[in-house]
Design a protein around this nucleic acid. Structure first.
Length: 215
DNA sequence: CCGACGATTTCCT
DNA sequence: GGAAATCGTCGGT
């Protein structure tokens, strides 16, 4: 694991440069759509096209892990752009973000859904009960398909075994919308980005009002 | 120290 | 549509 990008890599397979990520997470989120992630592991390579992402910021975003400042868990968010911030949630799921912006500023983009185009057998072996469409649909399914867990937190994706390729695979209409209940000066902030008309995005429950039955 | 709950998924009705 | 599963994290005593 963690090998370097092979010499003589084809132009179309070059990874995005670090400067791509050294911008606002909102811009990065929008520009990530339609690009392919290539993730190498001992089992082989899984390639998938990003179709839904979500931007997070620190101080301005109540939904962000970094809203109340730095903690041991979210420390990676405050580090340099172009690294993975991987966290554990609901006692069983891993979710992966790409850190954006300047050092000291907590910004990241959550990878919410992708379409697996290569290495379906490998991804499928990690998610046996999953249909092809569901392999990487949803942030926790996506990490499972790629084989990402907490040991990947802090991974450099510009020079690592997880890469986002610079050449977009598809175009399409980028749709964006706010999280329910979150607004900012001058109107709601469009935190979420997805490609319109992609089946893998499906009707995503907006805002998710947590069901709390007598607890 | 304690308790609430989460950037979710899955299964059941 | 609704609830369970499952545990680390964080804020409040």
């Amino acid at each position: 694991m963690g090998g370097h990008w092979p010499a003589g890599t084809r132009l179309s397979n070059r990874p995005l440069p670090r400067r791509f990520y050294q911008r606002s997470s909102l811009d990065v989120a929008r520009d990530l759509l339609g690009r392919d992630v290539v993730c190498e592991s001992a089992e082989g390579v899984v390639r998938a096209r990003l179709v839904e992402v979500e931007a997070y910021q620190g101080a301005d975003d109540p939904g962000s892990h970094a809203f109340r400042g730095q903690t041991p868990r979210n420390a990676t968010m405050f580090g340099p752009a172009g690294h993975l911030y991987v966290y554990f949630t609901y006692g069983m799921h891993w979710c992966a973000n790409i850190v954006c912006g300047a050092v000291g500023v907590a910004e990241a983009v959550l990878l919410r859904a992708a379409v697996v185009t290569d290495g379906r057998d490998i991804a499928g072996s990690r998610r046996p009960a999953s249909t092809a469409r569901d392999l990487a649909r949803g942030p926790a399914r996506l990490t499972k398909a790629f084989g990402i867990d907490g040991s990947w937190d802090g991974t450099d994706i510009v020079r690592g075994s997880f890469r986002v390729l610079a050449t977009p695979s598809i175009g399409g209409t980028v749709r964006t919308g706010p999280r329910v209940g979150v607004s900012g000066p001058g109107g709601p902030t469009p935190w979420r980005y997805w490609l319109d008309g992609v089946p893998e995005v499906s009707s995503y429950r907006p805002g998710v009002v947590r069901t709390r039955s007598g607890r």
